[in-house]
Design a protein around this nucleic acid. Structure first.
Length: 365
DNA sequence: AAATCATCCAACCGCACATGT
DNA sequence: AACATGTGCGGTTGGATGATT
């Protein structure tokens, strides 16, 4: 039977909106609210279908929309969230409060995706493209492999968040004797999402050879590494800021995960080894994590929003790398980077809070 | 100056899901 | 349970604009 169209298409206007139409829509919504979008056009005197009106309102006319150029921090946030969420623009948009999903989607497709591609990074899996090729040649079902890999990244990132929280909370509880406890109660998605270490989705493997500590020189090296490649490549026209977004993301993941960003060799894929192994490394913490979670340890912090914390962490990571400042592994065994430790603690706690506070209202879970 | 190419982004389309009857 | 309706979401398109030749 199929559903009827959202509106009678005959006689209704399509295409760009005129200022007069905008004014009518704004005036109507200002006075009455939008109510039923289907009924709105007739009531507002518009020759448009309700769907068109809704789109115009949500993507353009809404007063709480931020327009214009995306900031470096916004770009970083989009990349990071996309690595976690994929093309779930509405979910990503919820963490960029003044941006619409459509705008983020457009920006991704026209800027960020190309940027990652130019750096040899698969914008879908956020892994070096050669990896994807390798896996596809080894596995006839490359699509499945890709999906599993993506899932593995996501699960690993989540596990890492949990593991870090546990470790850092232990330290905090020792230092401060705080009594705030995380609620890992019945509807906790952290528990629901606990995965077996032997899960087939964990396709990545931890590289024992990856040093656990990332130094500021190495971070700087990651930057210069990419820039060096740029200089050696006539086709590469990514500017420094653009590179910094991506490199910052690499640092962000790498430094949050007891791993390394750069290895000698000078090619972009090398830099991603740390990223990949960092995601996998967290699986090894799973046992500790579940044990600790059962004990209910952890501080709840994160008065700030998730996005703000993301941005704070990343921008500071970036500044560290640019200033040559000291950075450590963030894994709790480096000992010399307490400030960095605190920053990342905020980030991971915020993820945890997000997870815990989003049992049903977040499209993420 | 004109033609061509590249980029941007608002808007459309179709599908999926939730809810109401 | 079956169907109708409303809404949200992601993918895609096409016109406008800018850059390059």
């Amino acid at each position: 039977m199929g559903r009827s169209p959202c509106c009678d298409k005959v006689g209704l206007k399509k295409g760009p909106w005129t200022p007069e139409e905008d004014q009518k829509l704004l005036a109507y919504i200002d006075e009455h609210g939008h109510g039923s979008w289907r009924a709105l056009p007739a009531r507002a005197g518009l020759q448009r279908c309700g769907k068109s009106c809704r789109l115009r309102w949500t993507n353009y006319l809404r007063p709480d929309i931020k327009r214009g150029k995306f900031s470096l921090q916004e770009e970083q946030t989009i990349i990071q969230l996309h690595a976690l969420l994929g093309n779930r623009w509405s979910a990503i948009a919820t963490h960029l409060s003044k941006r619409t999903d459509n705008e983020i989607k457009n920006y991704w497709n026209t800027h960020l995706k190309k940027r990652l591609t130019k750096m040899g990074i698969d914008p879908i899996t956020h892994k070096p493209k050669n990896d994807a090729l390798l896996s596809s040649s080894e596995n006839a079902n490359s699509k499945t492999a890709s999906n599993l890999s993506h899932m593995a990244q996501w699960e690993s990132a989540r596990l890492e968040a949990e593991a870090r929280l546990v470790r850092e909370s232990k330290i905090r509880s020792h230092n401060h004797n705080h009594n705030h406890k995380l609620d890992f109660g019945g509807n906790s998605h952290l528990k629901a999402w606990n995965i077996n270490l032997e899960s087939p989705t964990s396709t990545l493997s931890y590289n024992e050879n990856v040093p656990p500590i990332i130094t500021s020189e190495e971070i700087g090296g990651a930057n210069s590494n990419i820039n060096n490649k740029k200089n050696n490549n006539e086709d590469e026209n990514i500017n420094n800021d653009e590179n910094n977004v991506v490199v910052s993301m690499i640092e962000f993941v790498g430094t949050n995960s007891s791993s390394i960003v750069k290895e000698e060799g000078g090619d972009d894929q090398e830099q991603w080894k740390g990223y990949e192994s960092s995601l996998t490394f967290t699986s090894n913490l799973h046992h500790e994590l579940t044990m600790s979670m059962d004990q209910g340890v952890g501080d709840v912090i994160a008065e700030e929003g998730f996005t703000n914390l993301l941005l704070k962490t990343n921008s500071e990571d970036l500044s560290l790398s640019e200033s040559g400042g000291e950075s450590n592994n963030g894994g709790g065994d480096g000992g010399s980077g307490s400030e960095f430790y605190e920053d990342n603690n905020n980030y991971w706690n915020s993820i945890l809070n997000l997870v815990n506070s989003s049992p049903s209202d977040s499209p993420m879970f």
